[in-house]
């Protein structure tokens, strides 16, 4: 009788085991959210002027909420003297007049105010000369899908500069439609960040898509300011931690905006045009 009871108990246990073996249970959490804060994503350079996106934060569970600030006033300061208010282009984008060119060596910052929100002030950004490229070479593989471009430049000692390569393809003098789209959004992707270079001459390789059948490419070698470098690095780390379901530590994205979030940073770009008939073709023998 005891032996039978053991068998019955074991059978019941096995059943419960099978039934209770669920992998996960989901419960909804309430998020916390304080007041709306101003968000600034702005860039300044001598080549491209001042372009700033201004909006506000939304609650963490309100990803579809409206983030437009209806009545923002965005003021540009040069060496702590107010220059002018930026011109609003659409719901988010503000820019300086086309005639405005930032001066090398000058320091610029933004102050953004809006009714009902604390005034946001960005860190000052210094305009600097770009790091020049010594040369660019384009290599095309005749059997594979991709081509490679190599840029040659000098990285100076004790420089904390980080760099970024932007490649734009041209067909018959017009920008390729895909590049036009990608360059109108995501001005900087953290994946393209180039850093930790050795002092002196450096060569950086970058892939170029053969599919575009371009006739020339515009290579923009962009030197990033320290704040922009920090922002892209922290964004990259933040993005890595977000993918890990067991992450224990979150790495907040760097912000240089007081009473707000985001980034206002300077950069400087050095362009070089490369015509396709100047490429070096690598031929693989069968």
């Amino acid at each position: 009788m005891e032996k039978k009871s053991h068998i019955i108990i074991s059978f019941i246990i096995m059943l419960i085991c099978l039934v209770s073996c669920e992998e996960s249970t989901v419960l909804e959490y309430k998020t916390i959210y304080g007041d709306d804060k101003i968000v600034v994503h702005g860039f300044i350079s001598q080549q491209d002027g001042v372009n700033v996106i201004v909006k506000k934060t939304v609650p963490p569970d309100g990803v579809t909420n409206n983030d437009i600030i209806e009545n923002a006033n965005v003021e540009l300061f040069e060496n702590n003297h107010k220059l002018f208010s930026l011109i609003r282009k659409d719901d988010y984008l503000y820019h300086a007049p086309d005639t405005f060119m930032p001066k090398i060596g000058a320091s610029y910052h933004l102050e953004i105010s809006s009714a009902g929100m604390p005034k946001a002030i960005t860190s000052a950004q210094v305009i600097f000369a770009p790091t020049p490229l010594d040369s660019v070479k384009l290599f095309v593989e005749d059997q594979t899908y991709y081509s490679n471009i190599v840029v040659y430049f000098n990285h100076y000692p004790n420089s904390e500069n980080a760099y970024y390569l932007n490649i734009i393809h041209y067909h018959n003098g017009s920008i390729d439609s895909a590049d036009l789209y990608w360059n109108s959004i995501n001005l900087f992707s953290f994946a393209g960040l180039i850093e930790n270079l050795k002092n002196g001459p450096n060569a950086i390789e970058h892939s170029v898509n053969k599919m575009y059948e371009f006739d020339s490419i515009l290579v923009k070698f962009i030197t990033l300011s320290p704040d922009l470098k920090k922002f892209l690095k922290t964004y990259k780390d933040y993005d890595s931690s977000r993918e890990d379901p067991y992450y224990e530590t979150v790495y907040p994205v760097y912000s240089n905006v007081t009473n707000g979030y985001g980034i206002f940073a300077s950069y400087s770009s050095y362009p070089i045009f490369v015509r396709k008939d100047n490429v070096v073709t690598i031929i693989h023998e069968e």
Partner: peptide, 16 residues
């Protein structure tokens, strides 16, 4: 997170 920044033409979205 105490807030969320939606994606725009310059940058991807992120929490703050």
């Amino acid at each position: 997170p105490v807030g969320y920044v939606k994606k725009d033409n310059f940058l991807y979205d992120y929490f703050v």
